[in-house]
Simulated assay, not measured.
Amino acid sequence: MEDGRMDRVRSRVAVAGASGLIGGALARSLAADGHEVVRLVRRAPRDADEVRWDPEGGRVDAAGLDGCDAVVNLAGAGVGDHRWTDAYKTRIRSSRVHGTTALAEAVASLERRPRVFVNGSGIGFYGETGDRAVDESAPAGEGFLPSLCVEWEAAAVPAREAGVRTVFVRTGLVVARRGGAWGRLFPLFRAGLGGRLGDGSQYWSFVALHDEVAAIRHLLDREDLSGPFNLTAPHPLTNREVTAAMGRVLHRPAPFAVPAPVLRAALGEMAGDVLGSARVLPARLLESGFRFAFPEIDGAIRAAL
Rank of each mutant, 00 (worst) to 15 (best):
G122Q: 01
D131R: 07
S147H: 06
Y126I: 05
W84S: 15
T129Q: 05
A156R: 04
T129W: 03
E128S: 05
P187T: 12
G122S: 13
G124D: 08
S137Q: 13
G130D: 08
S137F: 05
F144S: 10
A155D: 07
L148A: 14
S109P: 04
D135I: 09
E161T: 06
F186T: 12
G183P: 03
G143I: 03
G120S: 13
R165M: 06
R170G: 06
A102M: 01
W152K: 01
S121F: 11
A108I: 07
E136F: 00
N119R: 09
R115A: 03
R113G: 03
A133E: 10
R132V: 12
S95V: 01
L103Q: 02
G127V: 08
P114K: 14
Y126V: 03
T166R: 04
T90I: 00
T166S: 10
F117N: 04
S147T: 13
N119S: 15
V97R: 06
R177A: 14
P139A: 08
V167N: 09
D131P: 15
P187H: 11
S121K: 00
W152R: 00
V118F: 05
L185R: 04
R113M: 01
S137P: 04
S94R: 15
V164P: 04
Y88T: 01
G163L: 14
G130Y: 10
T129H: 07
D135V: 08
G130K: 06
E151L: 10
A155M: 02
A106P: 10
A140D: 13
K89D: 06
G130E: 08
T171W: 11
A181P: 01
G80E: 11
D86R: 15
A106Y: 12
T85S: 15
R93H: 14
R178T: 10
P146R: 03
H98I: 03
A87S: 15
S109C: 02
E161A: 08
R83P: 02
A159M: 05
V157Y: 04
L148I: 12
F168R: 01
V150K: 14
A156Y: 01
R177G: 15
S121M: 12
V169Y: 12
G80R: 09
H98R: 12
P139C: 10
G127N: 01
G172N: 13
R170V: 14
R83V: 10
Y88A: 04
G99D: 10
A108G: 06
G99C: 09
G141P: 11
E161W: 03
H98C: 06
W182S: 13
S121R: 02
R93I: 03
H82K: 15
T101H: 12
S94V: 09
P146L: 05
